[in-house]
Simulated assay, not measured.
Amino acid sequence: MNKNLQQISLALIALSLSGCATIFTGTTQKITVSSDQPDAEVFVNNAYKGKTPARFSVSKKGNNEVITVKKDGFISQDIATQKGFNGVAILNLINPIAWGIDLLTGAVNRVSPNEYVIKLEAKK
């Protein structure tokens, strides 16, 4: 009986030291970028991520990411991701440690939208 009480106590301590949004939604989020031109190159903050349609993870922490879509013969397009409040963080209730963890890891944010469709215009 005493061992069960110890295990329950350890589990409760572990849960109280973890942010809910960090546990349930993580610190990164998958987004999809597609374009009206197949095989356009996709960059996030100048780092190559693949060709359209591309699916990859972006960090929820810090500033908005800049997505650039390029293809020869077309004008490149830039779009910034938008970050907003992740409602799952409400599960932290009044636990300041959990709120702190979610704030430090970025899990308190969500990227919206999670799908971007880019229209590329032909160069003249």
Results as ranks from 00 to 15, higher is better:
residue 96 P to S: 07
residue 111 V to A: 01
residue 44 V to R: 02
residue 36 D to Y: 07
residue 53 P to W: 11
residue 51 K to F: 14
residue 2 N to C: 03
residue 62 G to H: 05
residue 50 G to C: 11
residue 8 I to K: 02
residue 91 L to D: 02
residue 6 Q to V: 15
residue 99 W to V: 12
residue 79 I to M: 04
residue 112 S to T: 15
residue 53 P to Y: 11
residue 2 N to V: 14
residue 75 I to M: 01
residue 115 E to M: 01
residue 20 C to Y: 13
residue 47 A to L: 12
residue 74 F to L: 04
residue 16 S to Q: 08
residue 49 K to T: 12
residue 68 T to A: 01
residue 93 L to Y: 12
residue 77 Q to L: 06
residue 10 L to H: 09
residue 64 N to S: 13
residue 25 T to W: 03
residue 69 V to N: 03
residue 103 L to W: 15
residue 61 K to Q: 11
residue 25 T to V: 08
residue 104 L to W: 12
residue 7 Q to S: 06
residue 77 Q to G: 00
residue 18 S to Y: 03
residue 3 K to C: 07
residue 26 G to E: 10
residue 15 L to G: 10
residue 34 S to K: 06
residue 42 V to R: 00
residue 31 I to E: 08
residue 97 I to N: 07
residue 1 M to Q: 10
residue 23 I to M: 04
residue 80 A to N: 11
residue 80 A to W: 09
residue 93 L to I: 15
residue 40 A to M: 09
residue 84 G to M: 08
residue 62 G to T: 11
residue 40 A to H: 09
residue 75 I to C: 00
residue 97 I to E: 09
residue 33 V to E: 07
residue 68 T to I: 08
residue 67 I to L: 09
residue 69 V to S: 02
residue 115 E to C: 00
residue 47 A to T: 14
residue 30 K to N: 15
residue 45 N to Q: 10
residue 117 V to L: 05
residue 107 A to N: 05
residue 28 T to H: 09
residue 33 V to G: 00
residue 101 I to N: 04
residue 83 K to F: 08
residue 115 E to F: 04
residue 64 N to K: 06
residue 100 G to N: 08
residue 5 L to N: 14
residue 115 E to W: 03
residue 86 N to L: 02
residue 25 T to D: 07
residue 41 E to H: 05
residue 7 Q to W: 08
residue 67 I to G: 00
residue 114 N to D: 15
residue 27 T to Y: 04
residue 8 I to W: 05
residue 88 V to M: 13
residue 42 V to L: 04
residue 18 S to C: 10
residue 95 N to G: 02
residue 69 V to M: 04
residue 122 A to K: 03
residue 14 A to C: 03
residue 2 N to K: 07
residue 18 S to T: 15
residue 83 K to P: 01
residue 94 I to C: 02
residue 49 K to G: 04
residue 69 V to L: 06
residue 86 N to W: 07
residue 57 S to F: 10
residue 116 Y to V: 08
residue 30 K to A: 13
residue 21 A to T: 12
residue 107 A to P: 04
residue 122 A to G: 00
residue 6 Q to L: 12
residue 48 Y to G: 01
residue 77 Q to W: 10
residue 29 Q to V: 09
residue 1 M to R: 07
residue 117 V to H: 06
residue 44 V to H: 07
residue 30 K to T: 15
residue 43 F to N: 01
residue 65 E to C: 01
residue 62 G to Q: 06
residue 104 L to P: 02
residue 113 P to M: 12
residue 112 S to R: 03
residue 74 F to W: 14
residue 104 L to T: 13
residue 8 I to P: 01
residue 18 S to W: 03
residue 92 N to Q: 11
residue 108 V to C: 00
residue 1 M to I: 13
residue 88 V to I: 15
residue 24 F to G: 01
residue 11 A to V: 14
residue 26 G to I: 07
residue 47 A to E: 15
residue 45 N to A: 03
residue 110 R to L: 09
residue 48 Y to V: 06
residue 47 A to R: 11
residue 97 I to Q: 06
residue 102 D to A: 01
residue 44 V to E: 13
residue 108 V to E: 00
residue 82 Q to I: 05
residue 114 N to Q: 13
residue 113 P to T: 13
residue 104 L to K: 08
residue 49 K to S: 10
residue 15 L to N: 10
residue 1 M to A: 11
residue 124 K to T: 15
residue 66 V to C: 06
residue 81 T to Q: 01
residue 119 K to Y: 14
residue 28 T to Q: 08
residue 119 K to N: 15
residue 15 L to D: 13
residue 44 V to W: 10
residue 121 E to W: 09
residue 62 G to Y: 07
residue 30 K to Q: 15
